[in-house]
């Protein structure tokens, strides 16, 4: 049961455009403060920790851990319930919202703090970052 319409796609703004340009290249990137080295999520044009405007866009590892999640049982445009909405903690520190893919959307298959890696999926004309469990064999 999917509700009508496609998944909604993000529209970049000047401060976030490098994030979405990076995802289109298959990379996860965030601005990092040159002064205090804080990674900034969501992307902003200054550092909210020390108020510096000197930032460097930095490519991240794409590795994360499952910080918390829900399993949505109500439909959303373009999503078939049940599906997993999660907060992941990136290896570099910040937390972001995402979906967990490549695993059964069941409590038994998902364990808090499990290791995840980023994958990118086309949504509209934007590549959106999602996460899947790390392949044990690799």
């Amino acid at each position: 049961m999917t509700t009508a319409g496609p998944r909604v796609a993000p529209i970049a703004t000047p401060d976030t455009a490098p994030f979405w340009e990076a995802t289109s290249r298959g990379e996860l990137a965030l601005p990092r403060c040159r002064s205090c080295l804080t990674y900034i999520f969501y992307p902003r044009s200054h550092c909210p920790s020390c108020f510096s405007r000197e930032l460097d866009w930095t490519v991240l590892s794409g590795m994360a851990s499952l910080h918390s999640f829900v399993i949505a049982h109500l439909p959303a445009p373009g999503f078939d319930p049940p599906y997993v909405i999660a907060i992941v903690e990136l290896a570099e520190g910040p937390r972001m919202m995402t979906n967990i893919v490549g695993v059964e959307p069941s409590p038994e298959s998902l364990e808090l703090d499990m290791a995840l890696q980023v994958v990118f999926e086309l949504q509209g004309d934007v590549m959106v970052p999602r996460f899947r469990p790390v392949d044990e064999g690799k």
Partner: peptide, 26 residues
């Protein structure tokens, strides 16, 4: 879709508070 919610939450199938507010329970 240009808001921070539109860019960093809505693409993941959020449907308002019911899909986001319980995110801290587990």
């Amino acid at each position: 879709a240009e808001s921070m919610h539109g860019q960093f939450e809505a693409p993941f199938g959020t449907t308002g508070p019911v899909s986001m507010l319980p995110l801290n329970v587990l």
